[in-house]
Structures are given as C-alpha cells and as structure tokens.
Amino acid sequence: MSKEMIEALDALETEKGVKKEIVIDALETALQTAYKRNYNQAQNVEVTFDAKKGDIKVYAVKEVTGEVFDSRLEVSLKDAMAINKAYEIGDHIKFEVTPKDFGRIAAQTAKQVIMQRVREAERANVYDEYSQYENEIMQGTVERKDNKFVYVSLGKVEAVMPRSDQMQREDYKMHDRIKVYVSKVENATKGPQVFVSRTNPGMVKRLFEQEVPEIYDGTVEIVGVAREAGDRSKVAVRSTNENVDAVGTTVGPRGARVQAVVNELAGENMDIVQWEDDASDYIANALNPAEVIAVQFNDEDNERSATVIVPDYQLSLAIGKKGQNARLAAKLTGFKIDIKPESEVEFVDDDELTAEDVAEETDVAADDAVATDDVAADVTPDVDDTDDAEATADATPTDD
C-alpha cells in the first residue's frame, strides 16, 4: 500500500497541480481522526506519514510527571529515565501505538477527508491563478448558454458572462472563441467563480493596449473611456512624450489600429479625443466631431456643470442620435453638459441683463440723445425675435 500511496501522490501533483505536502498534511490529519474514532483513544496522538517510504505510524504523546494520574496522557519520571536519563519533568515522549489493522481502517475513514482537502487545494490553486487575471483580457471558448449567462471556458475554470455584460449585437454560439474581460474573481464556497464581460469599458482599454505599443509601454496614456457597448465609445488619450501625437498614434496608419479594436467589438464606433488640462478644451474635444464655439461654467453651481455653445447647424451633431454624443462626453469628462445653439445664446444674453445693466445702458443712451438730438437706442430685443423656438440638450454624467 505504501508504494501505491507514494505513486498516487506523485500523480496527483503532476495532473492536478496539488502539492504533495498539502495532501500529506491532509492525510495525517485524517489518520489521526480515524485512530481516535476507531480506537477510542485520548486526544494526545500524532500520526506521521513517511513521504519517501510511505510508512504510517501512530504515536501517543505523554508528558513526564512526578506522579501519574492518567496513564494515557502521562508517564512517570522513573519510566522516562529508563528510556533516556536526559528526560525531565515537563518533557513529552512519543510512544508508537500503531495498530496492526490500522492501514485498512485509516484508508476507509480518511478517504473522504483527503478528497475534500484535495478539492480545497485545487480550488485555491485555481483562485490564485485566475485572480491574477482580474481586469485583464483572456481568450475563451463558449461552452453553453441559458437565459441568464453565457458560460465561457478559460481552461481550468468555466467563467460566466451575465446578460448585462453581453453585447446586444453578438450571438454567442457553442465553440466560438471570444475575447473576454475578467471583471471579477470570487473565492466562493463551491469553488472559484470568474465573471467575464464584453461590455466593460476596461475591455476597450485593454484592446488598445494590445494594438498600440505606445499605450502598452506608457508613452501614450488612456485617461478615460466612456462606452455604450456595441454602439459607440469615446476614448481620451494623452502623450507623455511631447514628440508623440497621442490621437494619431492611437488611431494608427490609415486607422488600422483603431479599426482592429472596432472589428473585435462587432463594429462599435470609436471616437479618440485629446485629453487636456483645461476643462473647457477637454469638453470641446469630447464633443467631437461637433464644432464648439465656447464653453461656459456655472461657478455658483456646486455640481460640475458647463454650458456648451455650438453653431446652429452643428446642434444635432453635438447632441448626437438620441443624445448619445452629449451623454458620452458627459461620462468622459465628468461634467453635466448643457448644449445650446449660438442663436439662442444671443437672445438669452440680451434678455438676462440685470436691472443695473439696463439702467446703465439707458443712461448712456439718454446722454447720447441730448448730445446729438438723436433717438436713444433700444436695449431690448424685438418681441418677434423672442418667439424663436429653443433647442437645448442636457447631458449628465452617470456611473454607467
């Protein structure tokens, strides 16, 4: 049995990756439990397993005392000195008490305990391995799917992809090889649970790192990603080297680099924008491809909000289809964005003059009239002009 046990432990370490020391520790614990249960012995027993020979031995550990009250736990100083004159009171001595039929009983009793320890060790190995890939991209194979999840094999573990992390335009079929973003790794009771995603903004960042060497080595940095998975994303980049154009480098020659990311994400559009220290410039870049005339900030508002002025003919482009362009720009910059056409801002400026401003302009106009005998200029807009329809759009950053 001993030879077979050693071979089994070696095979377990080779095939399952479970270290022999872990299994031996579990085996010794199981054998100790088996001995106590089957032989009704005291708790002061130790079981050792020889990893080279495969021999199993049971020892009763007794304390050296001047007077023995329990022979199962104690040994007299006289008897101890008969074994070795160096023993003193308080020392512990091991006495071998291995039963002849212990091998059979131990094997039966310890089997379940050993298998449990082996499963735990395997789970720990898998968790340690895959927790290193959290927030990274892995290549997987679609195994199956149901109403809630798509199950993706990543090798030693089957990851799950919830519906919220699945691309609406993609149809996942068995045996399809796909790239997934490892969003979370949990060490659950039943074993490691890996959650993967195709919609996480982090996936866009990792894909660009794979396609753009300058991003991978840190020459170009991705500052932020705002994404509506499967439809459109905005990626803000900046360069740590003044001689490197961050946007051009990310886009690549003839758009080859960004196109590779677009192809991987089933045609999802990518807007690459230049990150700026100045918030107004950053917001203007984020609203690309729309032209921005000016960005005004509301200093009295505690929230980060800005009013963006665009040419009338650019209003629809700035807002985007169903407000998407403005919404993504808000997510990317972290500002609540209110987009207004140039014509409306002109009317608002005139109408929102304070009483003091009106009085001052009226006084100036009156003085001019006295000096020149001309009619004072009217400081209010015509009534007909105020009937123009308003066209504004609000975009508030969210945590989506």
Rank of each mutant, 00 (worst) to 15 (best):
P397M: 07
G248T: 04
V220F: 03
V262Q: 13
Y133Q: 11
E120W: 10
Q314Y: 01
K321R: 15
D387M: 13
D165T: 01
F95C: 02
M115S: 02
K19H: 10
D231T: 15
L287W: 04
V126S: 00
V247E: 03
T396I: 15
G267A: 04
Q314F: 01
E13T: 07
Y87I: 04
A82H: 09
D387G: 00
K173L: 08
A330G: 15
E268C: 02
P381A: 10
N135V: 04
N200I: 01
N288M: 05
P341N: 02
G54E: 06
T98Q: 05
Y151G: 05
A82G: 14
A355I: 10
E209D: 10
M270P: 02
A284H: 10
R304P: 01
A365S: 12
K190P: 00
N288F: 10
A369G: 09
V310P: 04
D165N: 12
R254W: 03
P381L: 14
P201R: 09
E7S: 12
E344F: 05
V262S: 13
N40P: 00
K57G: 01
V126C: 00
I83P: 00
T29G: 01
S2W: 04
R37C: 00
T240A: 02
E158K: 13
E129K: 11
V235H: 10
A229V: 07
I337T: 06
L154F: 04
P192Q: 11
A389N: 08
V261F: 06
V113A: 14
A34V: 05
L154M: 05
F335L: 05
V375I: 12
V244C: 03
V185H: 07
N263A: 12
R123S: 06
Y282I: 11
Y151M: 10
D50P: 03
T240D: 02
F102A: 02
Q132G: 09
A395P: 03
K184D: 08
T98A: 03
I222Q: 06
A260I: 08
V180C: 00
R327S: 15
V212D: 04
K331R: 14
I339L: 06
N187H: 13
